[in-house]
Amino acid sequence: MNVPGVAASEIPSDATLLDVREQDEWDAGHAPGALHIPMGELAGRLDELPDAPLHVICRSGGRSARVTAYLNANGWDAVNVEGGMQSWAAGGRPMAAETGAPPEVV
Rank of each mutant, 00 (worst) to 15 (best):
G44F: 03
I37S: 01
G44M: 01
S60K: 10
R63E: 09
G33P: 03
L46G: 10
L42T: 02
G61D: 09
H36W: 11
S64D: 00
H55L: 03
A28T: 09
V56Y: 02
P32T: 11
H36S: 04
D47W: 06
L35W: 03
E48W: 10
R59F: 13
P38D: 09
P38F: 10
V56G: 00
S64G: 06
A34C: 01
H30P: 06
P50N: 02
G62M: 01
H55G: 01
R63S: 13
P32G: 09
S60Q: 00
A34S: 15
H30Q: 04
H30R: 08
H30M: 11
P53G: 14
G62V: 15
V67Y: 09
G62R: 12
R66G: 14
L46H: 11
L54R: 05
D51P: 07
G62D: 13
H30I: 09
M39V: 10
G29S: 07
E41W: 12
P38L: 07
H30C: 13
C58V: 05
S60R: 02
L42W: 02
H55D: 03
P38S: 11
T68N: 04
H36N: 13
R59P: 05
P53Y: 09
G29K: 06
C58Y: 01
R63Y: 08
V67I: 13
L54A: 03
L35T: 12
A28S: 07
A65G: 12
C58F: 12
P38C: 05
L54D: 01
R45F: 06
G29C: 13
E41R: 12
L42G: 00
R66Y: 11
V67L: 02
R59G: 01
P50F: 10
G62E: 09
C58A: 05
G61T: 01
R45T: 08
T68P: 12
A31K: 01
G40D: 13
C58N: 02
G33N: 03
S64P: 02
L46V: 08
E48N: 05
A31T: 12
P53V: 08
H55N: 13
V67G: 06
A43P: 02
G29W: 06
D51C: 12
R63M: 09
A65S: 15
I37E: 05
S64A: 07
A28V: 00
P32Y: 03
C58W: 00
E41L: 15
H55M: 01
R63Q: 15
E48R: 15
V67Q: 11
A28L: 12
A34K: 07
S60C: 03
H55K: 01
A65L: 10
E48P: 02
G40E: 10
R59W: 04
S60P: 01
L46C: 07
V56W: 01
T68R: 14
L35Q: 13
G40L: 08
